[in-house]
Design a protein around this nucleic acid. Structure first.
Lengths: 357, 357
DNA sequence: CTGAAAGCGCTTACAG
DNA sequence: CTGAAAGCGCTTACAG
C-alpha cells in the first residue's frame, strides 16, 4: 500500500525541494494522481467523467481529489485541449433592461453546459466594440454572441481573422446577404410598422415619431413607421424628432414637451423605446395634458414599469428572453460542430395595446 | 537575409508536415520569431513592452506580428506566468441599475489596466453564489469583488481554500470583526436612520417601512429605521411591511395599496428601494391619494426616473459609481502586492429631499 | 540586450 | 481500462 491519501502533505515536500520549482503551491492533477496511486491521465479522465475508467477508480479518484481540495485549472485545460469554455457576449447597454433579459437567458443556457460568459458593453459605440473585441479575442472564446450587424470595418476584419462560431442577436439579416450569418431576432422594421398601423387604426392622423440613441434598430423601427405613413398619405417629416442622446426618462420628458410646443396638432406619438415613452407620460401629467384624450403615447419593448404607468403604456412586446435562449442554443450547436437547420430565426413580436394609445 | 516576413506562408508548410502536430493553425509566438529572425523570447518581451529590448527590434517585431495577424494566447500566458487577467465580480442582480453602475465603474478602472471582468449574478441567492464560485474559481481569477458579507458556509470555505485578493462592495464591516477584510461602501444602517430622521423632521409621526427582497442591506436599513423610531417613542411593528419577493414597481404598488388599507392612519412610508417607491407613487395616483399631502413617500438609492416622478421622489443618493471605482482601485493595489492604507472605505450617502416627502 | 532550457497544468494521440 | 510521451503557447529563471 504505497499510496494512502494520508501522505498528501509529504508528497509535496519529498520532491519539492529538489527541482528549481515555479510551482504555484496549488494542488495539481499529479498531486491527486500520486495520492490515489494512479496516473494523472486516469485522474484527468475520471474527473471529467469520461467513460472507459473503472467505476471503482472513478470513485476513489473523486474522493482523493475532494479531500485534497483539488480545483482544475481551466487555463491549462484550454491550452491543452485547444478548447475554451468562454463565450463572448457583446451588448450595447446594461442599463437597458432589454439586454439584461437577453444576458440572463444566455447565461442560463450556456452555464448549464459548462460555458462561461464574458460580457462586453459597447455603449452603442462601434469603436468600443472594436476595442472589446481586441481585448477579448486573445482569451480565445469558443463562440461569440453579437448584437445586430452593425460593426466597424476593423471589427469585421478582426472577426474574419479569428474564425469563431457566432450568432447575431435582435436583428435579422436576409439570408442572401451573407450565407454564413446566424441570427436570432425579429424584424424591427415590421414591428415599427405594426405599431404605426395600430395608431392609424385607433384613428390618429398626425402621428409623430420620437427616437433616441439612433442605433441601427431604432432606425429600422423608424423605417417601418415611415413606410406605413407614406402609404397612408400621412407622412410628415416635421413630425420626426430624432435625438442621438442616450434614451432615458428625462430625455423622453424633454422630447414630449418640445414636440407639443412645436407641433401642437400632433395627436399621437410613437416613442422608439419605453423609457422615453414613460418619461413622456410623466411630463404629460406635469403639463396637465390628458393621455390619450389629447395626445396618445406609445412605446417599444414593454419594459418593466410600462404596465404600471398612469395610464398604462401601449407598446410592443419584444421576445428578448427567447432571443437569448435560442441564440445560446444555436451557438451550442455550432460549438458541437452540428449543422443548424434554421440559421435565421424570426421570433416575431407582439403588440400590447393598453390605455395610452 | 534568411527571414523576410514574406516567407510566412512557407514557414508553416515547411515544418508542419513533419511533426505529429496538434497545432491550431493560429499564428504563434514562434511564427513571429521565425519571420522576424529573432528568438521567441525577444518577441515575447518586445510585444509586452518590456524594457531591455533594442528599440529597433521592438519596432520590427511589432510590424511582423501585425502583418502576420498575431494574437497572443491569454490562456497560455496565464499558465506560464501563473497570473490571470480576470477578475471575478459577483453581484446580486443586473436588473437593479444600482449594480449596473457599480459594474460599469469597475470595468472602466480594471479594463484600463488590462484586466477583464467575469460577471456573476447571484440573484440574491447564497446557493447560486456558491455555484458561481465553484464554476469561476477554476478560471483562477486574479481577484474577487463580492457584494456584501453575507456568504454561505460553503462559499466561505471555497474562498478560504482559494486565497485570492478580494474586496467587498456596498457594505462596511467593522475592522475588529475580521482584520483582513477589505471593503468599500457606506453604512446602510446609518442611511436608513437618516431617512427616518428626515421624515420625523418633516413632521410625520406614523412612519411605515416597506421592504422587499429582504437581503442583508435592506435589513440594515430597517435596523436604522427601527432605532430612530424607538428613540422617538414612535416605533410600531404594525407599520412594517416586509416582503421577500423581488423588488419591482408592481410590488410597490401592491404594498402601497395593502398598507393604506390596513393602516389608514399612516402618514409617511419609507420604501427600501426606489423601484417600489416609484410603484407606490403610481398606485397613489391611480387611487387618487395625494402625495405628500395625504401620505408621504420616500425611497432609497436615487435610481433613474426618481427625479422624473410626479411628484419627484425623496430618496437617498448612494455612491455606487464611487464604490465601483474605489473598490476596483483597491483591488488593483492588492494585485500589485501593495499595502492598502485604508482597507475600509466609507463613502457615505446623501439625502435627496424632493417633493414626495 | 538576447537566447536556450525548462516548466506552467493540463489533454491528445498512441500503445498496450 | 490504463499509462508514458509529447505538446498546447506562452513566461520564468538563468546565462551570457
Amino acid at each position: 500500500m504505497p499510496s494512502e491519501p494520508r501522505i498528501k502533505s509529504d508528497s509535496h515536500s519529498e520532491t519539492g525541494g529538489q527541482r528549481r520549482s515555479r510551482a504555484s503551491g496549488r494542488v495539481t492533477l499529479s498531486d491527486v494522481a500520486e495520492a490515489a496511486g494512479v496516473s494523472s491521465m486516469t485522474v484527468s479522465r475520471a474527473l471529467r467523467g469520461e467513460r472507459r475508467v473503472a467505476p471503482a477508480l472513478v470513485e476513489k479518484v473523486r474522493e482523493v481529489a475532494a479531500s485534497l481540495g483539488y480545483v482544475p485549472d481551466l487555463a491549462a485545460r484550454a491550452l491543452a485541449s485547444q478548447k475554451s469554455t468562454q463565450v463572448l457576449v457583446l451588448i450595447p447597454m446594461l442599463s437597458n433592461t432589454l439586454f439584461v433579459d437577453v444576458i440572463e437567458a444566455v447565461h442560463k443556457v450556456l452555464f448549464a453546459q459548462g460555458y462561461h460568459m464574458l460580457i462586453g458593453v459597447t455603449h452603442y459605440d462601434p469603436q468600443e466594440e472594436e476595442q472589446l473585441l481586441r481585448a477579448y479575442l486573445p482569451m480565445r472564446p469558443a463562440g461569440l454572441l453579437l448584437t445586430g450587424f452593425d460593426h466597424s470595418e476593423a471589427a469585421q476584419q478582426l472577426l474574419a481573422a479569428n474564425p469563431v462560431p457566432r450568432v447575431h442577436l435582435m436583428e435579422l439579416r436576409e439570408p442572401e446577404m451573407s450565407a454564413d450569418s446566424y441570427c436570432v431576432g425579429f424584424s424591427q422594421t415590421a414591428a415599427g410598422a405594426e405599431m404605426t398601423r395600430h395608431l392609424l387604426g385607433q384613428g390618429y392622423r398626425r402621428i409623430a415619431f420620437c427616437g433616441a440613441q439612433l442605433d441601427a434598430r431604432v432606425m429600422q423601427r423608424l423605417e417601418g413607421y415611415r413606410t406605413v405613413l407614406k402609404q397612408a398619405g400621412l407622412y410628415d417629416p416635421g413630425l420626426e424628432m430624432l435625438n442621438p442622446e442616450r434614451s432615458s426618462l428625462a430625455l423622453g420628458a424633454r422630447q414630449f414637451e418640445a414636440l407639443i410646443k412645436s407641433e401642437p396638432a400632433v395627436d399621437a406619438i410613437f416613442f422608439c423605446n419605453d423609457d422615453i415613452a414613460q418619461g413622456a407620460l410623466l411630463e404629460a401629467a406635469r403639463m396637465g395634458i390628458k393621455v390619450p384624450e389629447q395626445v396618445a403615447i406609445a412605446g417599444f419593448n414593454d419594459l418593466p414599469g410600462s404596465d404600471q404607468m398612469v395610464p398604462p403604456l401601449t407598446t410592443i412586446r419584444t421576445p428578448r428572453d427567447e432571443v437569448g435562449e435560442r441564440a445560446a442554443n444555436m451557438l451550442l450547436q455550432l460549438l458541437d460542430g452540428k449543422a443548424v437547420k434554421e440559421p435565421r430565426v424570426d421570433l416575431g413580436f407582439r403588440l400590447v395595446p393598453r390605455a395610452s394609445a
